[in-house]
């Protein structure tokens, strides 16, 4: 009676736990390096990181970034340095969230957050302007009316950047490091990332990351 065993299986399922995540009401946790929509970061002193170099626009395979740089006004500079991003637009009807722009950016200005649930109803909303992309005074992304946010969705906004950012110093080959962010300072590395590359081990919570000695870099 092998045929009838199946009926038992399906019947017993009635009393099992459900696996459904009731999506818009609850969300599953996202991976640390999830590629969501971008934010434009600022330094801890509030200065914008973007220097308007257009490297991100150049590398973007979807050609969805539009940047125009301009000289910093001497009286009230927007970014430390000569120039700043004067116009900055990303078209989310085209972006494929490859994060190449994040890797290309020399100043870690652009990073990707965990936010990806947009339901804009027109093309203008799909194009995020600089005013919408730049982080607010707490260093958090700005919420757009058509985005679905849950608590904490806006927190981890630069995981991928911290996994890939090169330190820029030729003495430190294969090492990564990153600058501070407004509201956070220098953020901790992500899970699985070698800590010796980053900063004082003493600052890092016990047991969370592999120790410097176990590293096989260089």
């Amino acid at each position: 009676m092998g045929y009838l065993n199946g009926f038992k299986v399906t019947f017993l399922k009635l009393f099992e736990e459900r696996v459904t995540t009731e999506y818009p009401k609850e969300k599953r946790p996202k991976p640390a390096r999830f590629h969501g929509r971008h934010v434009l970061n600022r330094y801890e002193d509030g200065m914008e990181k973007c220097i308007g170099c257009e490297l991100c626009a150049g590398v973007c395979p979807a050609k969805c970034i539009y940047v125009r740089g301009a000289d910093n006004p001497e009286a009230a500079p927007v970014s430390p340095g000569e120039r700043y991003g004067y116009v900055y637009e990303i078209n989310y009807l085209r972006c494929i969230h490859c994060d190449l722009c994040v890797e290309a950016c020399p100043t870690e200005a652009i990073t990707e957050s965990k936010l990806f649930e947009f339901s804009f109803t027109n093309r203008a909303d799909a194009i995020y302007t600089k005013a919408e992309l730049v982080v607010d005074d707490e260093g958090l992304p700005q919420r757009q009316p058509w985005e679905l946010w849950h608590d904490g969705d806006d927190l981890a906004t630069s995981g991928w950047m911290r996994a890939t950012a090169s330190s820029g110093n030729p003495d430190y080959q294969n090492r990564i490091s990153w600058s501070g962010e407004l509201g956070y300072g220098v953020r901790d590395p992500e899970i699985g990332q070698h800590l010796s590359n980053v900063r004082d081990e003493a600052d890092v919570p016990e047991g969370q990351y592999p120790s410097a000695d176990s590293g096989d870099h260089h």
Binding site: K13, L14, E16, E17, R18, V19, T20, E22
Partner: peptide
């Protein structure tokens, strides 16, 4: 859906 560990219309 109960028989497939799902919730179904709710």
């Amino acid at each position: 859906s109960d028989m497939q560990n799902r919730i179904g219309p709710n």
